[in-house]
Structure formats: structure tokens, C-alpha cells
Amino acid sequence: MNKLIANEMMKLVARKRLIVIGAIVGILVILFTFAQYKEVQTQRERLGTDDWRDSLQQQIIDMQNRLGSNRISDEWREQIQVSVQQLQFYLDQDINPNEPGAVSFVRMFIENSTDLFIPLLIMIVASDLVSSEHTLGSVKLLLTRPVKRWRILLSKYITLLLATSFIVAMTGLISYVLSGIVFGYHGWKAPIITGFVVEGSNVDTSRIKLISQWKFLLMDFGLVWFVAVVVGTLTFMLSVLIRSTAQSMGVMLASLISGAILNNMVSSWESAKYLFMVNLKLTNYLNGISPPIQGMTLLSSMLVLLVWWAVALILSFIVFTRQDVY
């Protein structure tokens, strides 16, 4: 098995996929770092102060002003109300929710990339692990070796898991190193509040916990990794079923983007919560952001994703071991 995985790794490295992904992450991090830096600067100029309490207070006032307008939807209104209460809570506790520093940046970056950006990077690898062998025709050589087909597919899947872990870790590392140049490499111990329970427009703060940012970041990474694995497995399945890199990538991209759109409009469509793509923002549960559909919890979302993962994996193996190769 190790030899088979070594083979897959050799092919992956030779095609320089991981380098491309690293470059994409690098460029994006630089962009975001610059944007963040600009934002901090303009805020400072506007408020004329360096104190985060003033800017937080200003943020709350802005939101309340928006609430006063009667042109915003109920759903949006609810979300803003929740945010206001959370920010107020931070202010009351005298904790800066946006502690400057590379660690906060990494947290912000990873949380925002969990439903689209990271899955996209994983797709670059997952979509052609199997289908590229078909396009190239090398599958005919691969499947006529004295190795059972399921072992070949398993070696590919393990390679995908390794690549997924590597990509998630690399994203964290690159964003830490690059943003640290501007924001400084600190913020590991900054306190973060988690455990907000959102019910409608009310925030229940009775079960909140104060934890260090590094612990919070670890949880974030765990959830992001989990999402990445599920999306990777789904793409992997499509790559087995469709045998075309472009098509499996297209299908996956379409469902991810539709998920991003659905997130904003499915609140009244209850059964949509069983779609994998509306369950990808797991990190939102940690931050106490209300889910797209009432009644969704971290556990239910993870369960839904787990079911999709298992079905995709089983289907991949059944199809791959039985299909005729022409």
C-alpha cells in the first residue's frame, strides 16, 4: 500500500499541483492582508483614535442605524440584532473581538474560506486524481497490474486525504507568515468568546466560554479540515463517476456556488438543510452566527456531511471496482 501511495504522491508532485495551490493561497493572502491593513487605517482616520473600544462602539451604532431603516428584510434584521448583542457583549467584557495580529488574521481568513476557497483548492487535486488517468489512458496500464482495483482506489483516496491535510495546513501557515509581516506575529493568547446560543433574534449568553485564540483556531482548523475532506470526497466520487476532470470540477463548482447562494435564501425551505452545500460553514457555529435554516446545529450539520461523505465513498468504490474500461 505504501508503494501505491508513493506512486500517487510522485504523480501529484510531478504535476506541480501543490505548488500552484500554494501560489494561489499566497497571492490571496497578500490581497487580503493589504485590504485589512487599509481598512484599519481608514477606520483610524475616521474615528481619530487607536482605541478598539471606540471603533467597536461605532460599529454598534452603525448597525443600530441600519436596524432603524424599514427597508431591510426580517431575516437580515435578525442577523444584525444578533451581531449587535454579541458586539455589545464583547464591549461589556472589555475583550477585543478583532485583536490585531497574524493569528486573528489567520482565523478570519480560514473562517471566510471554509465554504468556497478551501474546497476550491481541494477540488484542484481531487477532481483529476481518477479522471486524469482516464483522460490520459494510463488507467489501462494501472488496472492491468497484479493489484486489486480497490487497493488502487484506496491509495488514491489516502493520497487525497494527505493532500487535503497538507493544503489546509499550508493555507494556515502561508497566511500566518505573510500577514505577520504587516500585523506582527502575535495574538495566540488573545481571549475569544464562544458558546453563543442564537434563538431567533436573541442571543443567549448564559453558556458562553472564554478561551484562548489558539484553542479557538485549532477548533476552526478541525472543522475546516472536516469540510475539506467531505468536499474532496464528493469531488473524488464525481471524478470516478464522470471520468472527466473538467466536468466533475464543473458539477462540484456549481453545487458549491449554489450553496453559497442558497445560504442566503433557504430560511423557509426546511428540507434544504439536508443538502451538503448549505452545511459547509461549520465555523459559524463557533462564532454564534445564526445558521441559514432554523434548527441547524453544529452536530446536525456534521451528521449531514458525514452521510454525504460515506455515500460518496461507498459509491466511488463500488463503481471503480466494477466498471468496464474502454
Binding site: K3, A6, M10, K11, A14, L136, G137, P146, V147
Partner: peptide, 18 residues
């Protein structure tokens, strides 16, 4: 249909490993 992005030796190594 061998892997064009690998060298001849790497291709043989790939199949030898199997």
C-alpha cells in the same frame, strides 16, 4: 499511455512498485 510528466525511469519505477 504512460505519464508524460514523469521521466521514463519514473514511469518504470511507478509500474515496478505495483
Amino acid at each position: 499511455e504512460l505519464y508524460p510528466y514523469l521521466s521514463g525511469r519514473e514511469n518504470l519505477l511507478h509500474f515496478a512498485r505495483m
